[in-house]
Design a protein around this nucleic acid. Sequence first.
DNA 1: ATATATCTTTACAAAATCTTTATAACTTTT
DNA 2: AAAAGTTATAAAGATTTTGTAAAGATATAT
Lengths: 233, 233
Amino acid sequence: MNQQPRILVVDDEPQIARVLRTGLKTHGYDVRVAADGLSALETFGDWHPDLVVTDLAMPNLDGLELCKRLREVSQLPIIVLSVRGEEKTKVEALDAGADDYVTKPFGMDELLARVRAQLRRALKPVASETSSAVLEVGDFRVDLESRRVFVRGSEVHLTPKEYDLLVHFLRHAGKVLTHHTLLAAVWGGNYTEQGEYLRVFVGQLRKKIETNPSSPRYILTEPWVGYRFNPDS
Amino acid sequence: MNQQPRILVVDDEPQIARVLRTGLKTHGYDVRVAADGLSALETFGDWHPDLVVTDLAMPNLDGLELCKRLREVSQLPIIVLSVRGEEKTKVEALDAGADDYVTKPFGMDELLARVRAQLRRALKPVASETSSAVLEVGDFRVDLESRRVFVRGSEVHLTPKEYDLLVHFLRHAGKVLTHHTLLAAVWGGNYTEQGEYLRVFVGQLRKKIETNPSSPRYILTEPWVGYRFNPDS
DNA sequence: ATATATCTTTACAAAATCTTTATAACTTTT
DNA sequence: AAAAGTTATAAAGATTTTGTAAAGATATAT
């Protein structure tokens, strides 16, 4: 699924099938060809293509019927390719479950663009769900999406600046971060001289996350340089 | 939102716009028309259409640029309608983000079928979230079809905006939602700076759903960030 | 056209956060 | 051990955001 997209071409005319296969293959798709509707369904079951390009007129099971059968089990994009240009036929195919209808003779570039358009939409949601939004370091867990912070299992409420500061520490756990760096990260590049801000907020953070704020275990001072976040217990 | 699908028609030729509007309206769609790309973007922000049908040649901002701009903020289906039949133009439009390209003159029935095909796909995922007709979270129960809301067993009457706001909270229970996000969800993308609206409506909602509105238990404030809905009792 | 409900706008009080200030404690250097 | 600089802490002050009520505007229904 993370490889090249798989496209199933369904056409009983060998010349057209060949043109389609080579055209699609040279543009980075993994292609298989089926000569009729029944074998198309079979290949679909074995191979799980990402997209189907099918002719309308075929032996055994025509394109219309193929669309309907595929729709019973899948939402994959279907592009119908046909010599028949009448409006009624197009409407029938689209309502049977096709996502697009291209009339032969067709331009390969246009077909490729329509394939891209369909795949763009179909493959999108898979990608967007992938990003995990939890930052876990030592005794700390931050759900970046819900903006909630847990220390040793219990939730702690942080103000925006405190939150930004902690997240920056967690993202660079173990490293010594200079005053300059921290100020730039939380307050922005125009506040890199406001060392007082940092001291005050480090103090507030410690009060909220340290078990003993006066002898910190997580946020360690590196005198004359900055601070270091120690994730180890 | 649960009503008839909204379609935004973008065309600077009044005759064509009129044909499209009446054709789509008689088939059960809620239609608005914009005469150029810029006003289309504006209407998009206010109105949240489910689909856009646009011409390519337009004043101010052409169809190609409109596609790109819309794609920056939305995944809604876009159908391009144009007199230009050259393959290169089609490819350009599809790669700019269009989902389909129809050459003028077009048959209304075909266009309607293509609209159905696009909406079938686009509204499906929303439908799967919605399909459970009832949204139950903690002490709250919302019948999405009849738009009725029950809190701790008894029904509460909400105005449309209050309802949209609550449903958005329930769908993202536990997460911190920024002012920006909430405003975009309820009022649309052109109102993301109207923090006052949000304050007023959060206040009204609290009066209706909280047992003690002055110390809220469900809708919690995250100062400087937004609000968080807490479903736990 | 009138009445009703809803949305928008305005104004001000209340609350939370951020900034500033002051002082004490600590480190390093001499 | 004292001086100079840095860091910690508390608390006052300023700023911004939030809560709330109510008036004005808009939309909807009768």
